[in-house]
Nucleic acid binder design. Sequence first.
DNA 1: TGACAAACCATGAAATCCCATGATAACCCA
DNA 2: TGGGTTATCATGGGATTTCATGGTTTGTCA
Lengths: 162, 162
Amino acid sequence: MERGFKVTSFLSTFVNKVDRKGRVSVPAPFRAALSEASYQGVIAYPSLADSAIDAFGRAMLEDLNQRRLDKTMADGEFEQALLGTDNMIDTIMAMAHELPFDGEGRILLPTLLAEAAGITDRAAFVGRGTRFQIWAPETFEKHQLDAVTSLRTRLRENGNGT
Amino acid sequence: MERGFKVTSFLSTFVNKVDRKGRVSVPAPFRAALSEASYQGVIAYPSLADSAIDAFGRAMLEDLNQRRLDKTMADGEFEQALLGTDNMIDTIMAMAHELPFDGEGRILLPTLLAEAAGITDRAAFVGRGTRFQIWAPETFEKHQLDAVTSLRTRLRENGNGT
DNA sequence: TGACAAACCATGAAATCCCATGATAACCCA
DNA sequence: TGGGTTATCATGGGATTTCATGGTTTGTCA
């Protein structure tokens, strides 16, 4: 499948401090994955599935909108482009924040996002392949433990982890 | 497909005050997205789908008109192109207001538009990717909550997050 | 000449930039 | 391979700029 951007990879988990001003360092490896992008920063919004923040590079966002726009335009459905029937992308656009890096590679966590994820003084950056998440460390630890346990159980029962 | 403007110009939600004269600051990030246009301001009209104001830059308007023309010409519908039968784009053009920025990046909300959206003293600027909307904050909050809730439900049922 | 809109100017709060520091990890050479 | 040196990186705080907001004055059209 043709994609308009390079597939970046986010791996592993890093816990960083949130300072008094609400700033957090994005882990250097994550920044490196985005270093070639024209926009230096990340797009973030409250995860729909977890009590966390979902994030990725701007390229991913452009791709999403481009696809939608191309589709409606190709069908001659300009009206769709104007009406914006309330689909997922529209809803996410409204919640999404553009978080540019400062000179030191930090981002400023918007209060709304921090609260949605229950983040106060520390933030866990969790790699998820093409995107990553930001959790309150304690919340993530529990979540991860549950995930691992249920995977192990399933493996033992089915001998199959898919 | 080549397009003359960036696909994702408007992101996130900003709530600003409407002063006694009916002026509101357009969020700086939105202004930045329009900064290269020759016309410094926005096009706005009452949304046909929501209780809100729909808005975008001139580039979008011209793009739409161009596309419509291309399509009708391609279909051999010259008559339509000339006569301009009453389609959605025509209807919208008739309702649309041109709202120029003042020196500080504010626009003056026409009473008609403000009333249509139920806006009084505060206005929520909601990014929708290629365009944006202006809502009464309370109305939008409800609307967004509904959208997110139904998305979450759908996610849980389908197990499909794309 | 009166009402309204546009340009102009002022201000406080918040975001951004810039520099400093300590800790850790990578490196290099004997 | 060990031990010291250097580079990277997370973190903190102060200085500076941006930005939203409010008011005043000037211009314009009915």
